[in-house]
Design a protein around this nucleic acid. Structure first.
Lengths: 210, 210
DNA sequence: AATCCGTTGTAACATTTGTTACCGTCTATC
DNA sequence: GATAGACGGTAACAAATGTTACAACGGATT
């Protein structure tokens, strides 16, 4: 674990903090598709993302979803931060987008470190900032873009996260994450294919030029 | 100022912090409609809201707006927090919704207090948490509600902020904040009036039962 | 090969939201 | 009281999105 820490967090944290994390943190692996947090869960520890990616989802009244954003290596879950401190329930669902490695940190420690390590404070604050910006971006997409533009944005994000020009999702899955219907997604994807921007296959989409 | 502080923040901050704030903070009054922050502005100080209310707005590519949320007494602007620290430009616009009194705190101090006062850290963290929840709520509204429901929610919020059952806005102003058109707002308001839930007058709306 | 089930394509239609246009009313100002 | 401009009501239409229904296809299983 100490190596993972050095690789991903040494530019953020001083050595003494890295060592503390190494002492009290525990390593955890989750496979693609595995659920990390469910809505209503209480959280007892805070995740530091070492590798992989996690998608954060919101649910409406009917049980349908909406993708909020992705967490990547070096990120932490800002939602979890104060949920931990305030003993609040989670408002979101977290699912591994890829195979992912995390370091879990007990709540008490992160409180203690806030007073002790300046780099930790900065990390926490900048996590919040990043997350707020991410949320603003999500709001922009939903409020200002049409579904075709949102779909393109979604495909770009997926491609970036996955690192490959192939997205292994069904139209139904995409529809869930964009909070629309499968028919709408199929329709718009077809249009993108006709324009030569993507290639459609069963269970996968190849990005050509978006 | 010390009285304002005692009234609104003594349950949050210890006496020594209240005194510090009193020493370095400066009081500021803004009138209804006055702009506090413009998109792209750099921020040199952090506001603590003593009384009144501030609306936070986001802008799309065409210069049209969207209301994100309101700040009320006891709140601070979470966006400003890290904008200050990170020397980033503001992503939002802030306009006084009512006549408002603020205490402005220089950036350096808030950094210093993070290490020194536990109550300040908790305040900052819980501000972030509140704001993230507020943003989630905004996302819910935009993503999951139809315009008629969003309008009702908007009217309720306005009523709550203003403290009176009368909202002094034109249909055009409401349309801006909901990022839709005046005609749509007029249409939906008329429907609400027909249902007996509101009463429409020139430049004002009386809430009867929402 | 026959069957089943999840996936995709597509048409037809409904609903919601946005746009344009026009008119009447109110208010401030001259 | 004449005029101009902001405000609000409404119709007619356009565009975007959602819904229902059905057919074709692919892959897995029997």
């Amino acid at each position: 674990m100490i190596n993972d820490l050095r690789t991903n967090f040494s530019h953020l944290f001083e050595d003494s903090l890295i060592e503390e994390i190494n002492k009290v943190g525990s390593l955890r692996h989750v496979s693609e598709g595995e659920k990390l947090i469910e809505i209503g869960d209480y959280m007892r520890s805070m995740p530091l993302l070492v590798s992989g990616a996690i998608k954060i989802l919101r649910e409406d009244g009917e049980g349908d979803e909406l993708l909020l954003y992705f967490l990547e290596a070096g990120d932490t879950c800002a939602m979890t931060l104060t949920c931990c401190l305030g003993q609040k329930k989670s408002e979101i669902r977290a699912i591994a987008e890829l195979d992912t490695t995390l370091i879990m940190i007990p709540v008490q420690k992160m409180e203690e470190w806030m007073g002790k390590f300046r780099s930790w404070r900065n990390f926490v604050l900048s996590s919040y900032h990043t997350r707020l910006m991410e949320m603003l971006d999500t709001i922009d997409s939903i409020a200002f873009l049409n579904m075709d533009e949102r779909l393109v944005k979604y495909l770009r994000d997926k491609q970036k996260i996955g690192g490959e020009p192939i997205i292994n999702s069904t139209h139904q899955e995409i529809a869930y994450e964009l909070h629309t219907s499968r028919v709408v997604v199929s329709r718009l994807l077809k249009k993108l294919e006709t324009m030569g921007k993507i290639e459609l296959n069963r269970n996968s989409i190849r990005i050509i030029a978006l």
